[in-house]
């Protein structure tokens, strides 16, 4: 049974069609890159997958259950974790609290209050930070960290949250190439180690080819192609990114 099952999803904003009859399946453990020109609907698709945006029509089964049936945030947080371009973290809190925020779905109110003063599940946070190589920054204020380090803290939070599916919306768009590669390599490695499923939108086709086994290309809210990385040719890509004016 596929973990993510989208059937004929459409989404309209005002008059603009963001997604039109979109269908695809993602199996457990797959690594999928979403590519496509700006405004193709990548972010809308990821928000739909995260359950933040409700589609107008179509069905979305997450682990065999319609997404609307996940009434509680805590249940959904076990299935889906999100990492974004930046601004993921609470800048005024220390790193450890941002990492432990991944546990908020598990904790009750009183435990989470206590943790603000006496961090709970410290070992878990320390392990996660160690895996992203930031153990020494445990007690630093998050706003003092660089952009790349902040994304790694966000990764540590995902490790602590440990969802079945990770959705990443342009997680490296605001980083320089070296930091971007670093974060991507780390994220894909961790996802493999944990046996999780990853869906990531990317601007860079190069990164998509390097780190992902399957690439879904979106254009004008539709699936333009959905192929294993090895079968993608230059012609595919040229056509995908063709400017509208030239196509006419």
């Amino acid at each position: 049974m596929p973990l993510i099952e989208l059937n004929n999803i459409t989404k309209q904003f005002e008059r603009k069609i963001a997604l039109s009859s979109l269908s695809f399946h993602v199996k457990k453990g797959e690594m999928v890159a979403l590519i496509g020109p700006s405004g193709a609907g990548k972010s809308t698709l990821l928000n739909t997958l995260a359950g933040i945006t409700a589609p107008n029509t179509g069905t979305y089964l997450l682990d065999g259950v319609p997404i609307q049936h996940y009434k509680k945030r805590k249940e959904l947080a076990k299935k889906i974790g999100v990492i974004r371009q930046q601004f993921d973290l609470i800048a005024s809190l220390p790193v450890i609290q941002n990492v432990l925020a991944g546990r908020l779905g598990e904790w009750g109110f009183f435990k989470s209050m206590l943790s603000l003063f006496l961090p709970q599940d410290k070992q878990l946070a320390a392990n996660a930070l160690n895996r992203v190589g930031l153990l020494d920054k445990l007690y630093d204020q998050t706003s003092k960290l660089s952009g790349g380090e902040q994304q790694r803290v966000a990764l540590a939070r995902l490790l602590v949250q440990s969802p079945a599916v990770i959705l990443a919306d342009e997680p490296v768009a605001s980083l320089d190439p070296a930091r971007a590669e670093d974060v991507l390599a780390m994220l894909t490695k961790l996802v493999k180690e944990e046996g999780q499923t990853l869906v990531m939108s990317l601007h860079s086709v190069e990164y998509a080819k390097k780190y992902f086994s399957r690439i879904i290309a979106l254009r004008d809210g539709e699936v333009f192609f959905d192929l294993p990385t090895s079968e993608i040719t230059k012609e595919h890509l040229a056509e995908l990114y063709l400017l509208k004016e030239m196509a006419l």
Binding site: A50, I52, R73, K74, L76, A77, K78, I80, G81, V82, R84, F87, D88, L89, I90, A91, S92, L93, Q97, A101, G102, L104, G105, E106, W107, F109, S112, M113, L116, R157, Q161
Partner: peptide, 25 residues
């Protein structure tokens, strides 16, 4: 609102969002 909404996607309740997101910010 972005960092605060992200707490919601890691499963935080409204009260937890208040103490982990809004108040520290």
């Amino acid at each position: 609102a972005r960092p605060i909404r992200n707490l919601a996607s890691s499963g935080a309740s409204n009260a937890q969002i208040l103490f982990y997101g809004i108040i520290p910010t």
